[in-house]
Amino acid sequence: MIEVNNIRKTYGDTVALDAVTLSVGKGELFGLIGPDGAGKTSLFRILTTLLLPEGGSATVNHHDVVKDYKKIRKEAGYMPGNFSLYQDLSVEENLQFFASIFHTDIQTNFEIIRSIYEPLAPFKNRRAGALSGGMKQKLALCCSLIHNPPVLFLDEPTTGVDALSRQEFWETLHELKKKGVTILVSTPYMDEASLCDRIAMIQAGHLIGIGTPAEIISGFTKPLWSVSGMDIYRLLKDLQDFQQTDSCSLFGNNIHVTLKNGVADVSALKEYLLRKGHETASINPVAPVIEDCFIERMKE
């Protein structure tokens, strides 16, 4: 459904995308994971025909993003990063307007948005600007779905939305997937990666890993420890200073650590922490998650 081949894009001296290649199958829920400034939005804009790539090629539903851009504009659904709605128009007026520019109306494809629109219906006369973040996100999704697109581009749809709304949003995406919509979604939240069929991790314009979440996690072979204790910041500082530390990063209230010689170094680490006065520190083996994989691959 989406084929990206060796795409390159620069802004002056800054390389936004470098040799990015990926492929999204029909009906797949594909996540593009990476921090701010990694190049996610640039890739979305190239695929939605808003930017021209400087090298490589890409197709969406078999249409070339440069030559057949008009066809893509007719078919694809796109929700840009900042929920681009008209704040001074009501919920219903926004929906009507976006339906009309795709030469359709609200009723024709109402089935596809019914469940998403339901919680919005009581507020249909409220101005979009007065909605909560989660509601705005739902409305923006409805607007991008109103012409029943076979492929949907969602650029950071969960940024700035509360945890509950985020969870609901992902449930909605799974329902859409069941209806056969191909979805490319980007997010800076690593914990959302496991909710995708497949993911691509992007960092500074380069893809640093691609595959199902399970595949990516199984690629993390080093033993991983979760260290916790009092005064977490001093603990982190001391762990960074420890000579055998391979990587360590804060992870909620714990610190995830890998050691240069794996299991062999654990007793040395325990001694080191005792010496540094962290009597209450505990070291437990832990299963890696996507974020561990991301940090690991970022270093390479």
Partner: peptide
């Protein structure tokens, strides 16, 4: 400025 032009451009308009 508000980003709605992005949606308009990405539409068949």
């Amino acid at each position: 400025e508000t980003g709605t032009m992005e949606v308009l451009l990405a539409s068949p308009l």
